[in-house]
Amino acid sequence: MLEIDSLSKRFGGLVAVDDVSTRIEAGKINAIIGPNGAGKTTFFNLISGAHLPSSGRIVFNGEDVTRLGADRMARLGVARTFQSTALFDRATVLDNLIVGHRLRTQSGLWDVLLNTRRLQQEERVCRDKAREALDFVGLAALAQRLAGDISQEERKRVAFALALATEPKLMLLDEPAGGVNPEETEGLAELIRKLVKHGITVCLVEHKMNMIMKLADRIMVLNYGRKIAEGTPAEVRANPAVIDAYLGSEHAEV
């Protein structure tokens, strides 16, 4: 689905991502791990269009998207969540989600000023898509709750729903289980499996290694911006370079 060839990003003298090549496989759960400062979030920023690469090439479903911005990538079907879920806390959960489908709509300023039939139809579609996304992530009962009144785990699920409302083909999840307890982590892992069962490819960055080793089909390991390993969870867990740089001996296979 996504081919990355010799991708690099420099910020002045700092090389945040250094000549990384990899493939994100369709229909799979792909993971990126590594120490803090390894370049994981910058890598996500590059493939989502938030940053333009200094060099290298990105191909999405056969199309060269290397120089496309985040809005174009979203329209092509790449959705992104963030480590911290920013919501409009004084709006309802449903109203927070309605914005997600707007990138699929055509209404402009004149439609708003004249309250056209097209605007009214698109508003109904956006609301329906928001409800569908909330139901998918298990939060239908919270539609009319203020976003500021929901828990951290529920905010994580709302972030999933917001990405879903954009009708993605690929979802990039940045620490989707950050700040939640083990039981909630397992629930979010099940939600990720559900996404894949419904035809959405997933790539995630996460520090919870027990979750990643059970969940991922393929793992890429970054350290100081460079790829140091890639493979199945078993292959990565047994890789001496990964053990030394990140996992530690407690994660090595016996």
Rank of each mutant, 00 (worst) to 15 (best):
S84Y: 13
A86M: 04
F88D: 10
R90P: 08
T92F: 13
T92Q: 11
L94K: 14
D95S: 14
D95C: 02
N96Y: 07
N96D: 03
L97K: 04
S107V: 03
S107I: 00
L109H: 00
W110Q: 09
W110T: 08
D111P: 06
L113S: 10
L114R: 13
T116L: 09
T116D: 05
E123G: 06
D128A: 14
K129R: 15
A130C: 05
E132R: 08
A133F: 01
D135S: 12
F136A: 09
L139M: 13
A141E: 13
A143T: 07
A147Q: 09
G148Y: 06
D149S: 14
S151T: 15
Q152V: 15
R157A: 11
R157C: 05
V158E: 05
A159S: 15
F160C: 00
A163M: 04
A165Q: 08
P168K: 07
P168R: 05
L172A: 06
E175A: 04
G178M: 08
G179M: 11
V180A: 12
N181K: 11
E183W: 09
T185L: 10
T185D: 05
L188R: 02
L191H: 08
L191Q: 01
K194W: 03
L195I: 04
H198R: 11
G199A: 06
G199K: 07
H207L: 10
K208T: 08
I212T: 00
L215E: 07
D217N: 15
